[in-house]
Computed example of a mutant assay.
Amino acid sequence: MSDQPRPTETEHLAERETQHRARPEPATYRERLWVPLWWWPVGFALAGLLAAEIHMGAPGLRAWLPYVLLFPVPVWVLLWMSRHRLEVAPDATGTSELRVDRAHLPVSFVARATVVPKSAKSAALGRQLDPAAYVQHRPWIGTLVLLVLDDPDDPTPYWLVSTRRPAAVLAALGIPSAV
């Protein structure tokens, strides 16, 4: 038997509460911007075509080597292109924040927000784009979210982020979208 006293019920509950607070809160919105499905067969067709070109002059077992070596390439490329993640989750203070890959933006710094439709995407990313803006754009995603910042310590005027469901992102942040 040990000489140490057993923890009381209150101490046990306090320890469990501390452990619970250490866990991150679940995200209220999460999105991963995968490449379109039709890109996969195109990627495999290009890899197969290149492997067939290499295969033409090799007899025997070496004939299959280009296929074995080249077919993982489109898988890696398309997964790498689909690495973009967008998440709205509570931060350490309990307020919502937008996380885009490794960047995060507390909602308290957002002055206003709007949805950039597909028809206005070219202008928003072209002649109207501020060079100091934070941009996470994926060309295969039609809509963007524009978040104008109100932070005197940050030179970034706004965030421009690709998303398939911009209204859901703004609702998860608790920001009324301006039209």
Rank of each mutant, 00 (worst) to 15 (best):
R32N: 10
D91N: 11
R112S: 10
W39G: 04
E25C: 01
A133S: 06
P59H: 07
A123R: 05
A113H: 00
V100Q: 04
L146P: 12
T95G: 10
T143H: 13
R102S: 14
Y134R: 04
R62Q: 11
L78P: 05
S177Q: 08
E31P: 00
F44V: 06
L50M: 13
G94D: 09
P66F: 05
V100Y: 06
A22P: 00
R32K: 09
H84Q: 13
R16E: 14
S108I: 15
R127N: 10
V179D: 15
V77Q: 03
L69D: 07
S122C: 02
V145F: 01
L50I: 14
A45E: 04
V161D: 03
V169C: 00
H84D: 10
A133W: 02
V68P: 06
D91W: 00
R21C: 07
L160F: 09
E31M: 03
V169G: 00
L33V: 05
T114P: 03
A103M: 08
S177M: 05
L149A: 03
G60L: 02
V115D: 04
W140I: 01
R32T: 11
A47M: 03
S177H: 06
V42C: 09
G43L: 08
G43K: 01
G94Y: 07
A167H: 12
A89T: 10
E15T: 08
R30P: 01
V135H: 01
G94T: 05
W159S: 02
L13D: 12
M1P: 09
S122R: 10
L49E: 06
H20M: 12
P24E: 02
Q19S: 13
R138C: 08
R127W: 10
L65Q: 11
V145T: 08
P26S: 08
A92P: 04
A58K: 13
E97Q: 14
L78T: 07
L125F: 03
W34H: 10
L105S: 02
W76I: 15
K121D: 13
L146Y: 11
A14P: 02
M1A: 14
W34C: 06
L46V: 12
G48V: 05
D3S: 15
T8Q: 01
L33F: 06
P155K: 05
V169R: 02
A120S: 11
L147S: 02
Y67L: 09
S82G: 09
P26C: 03
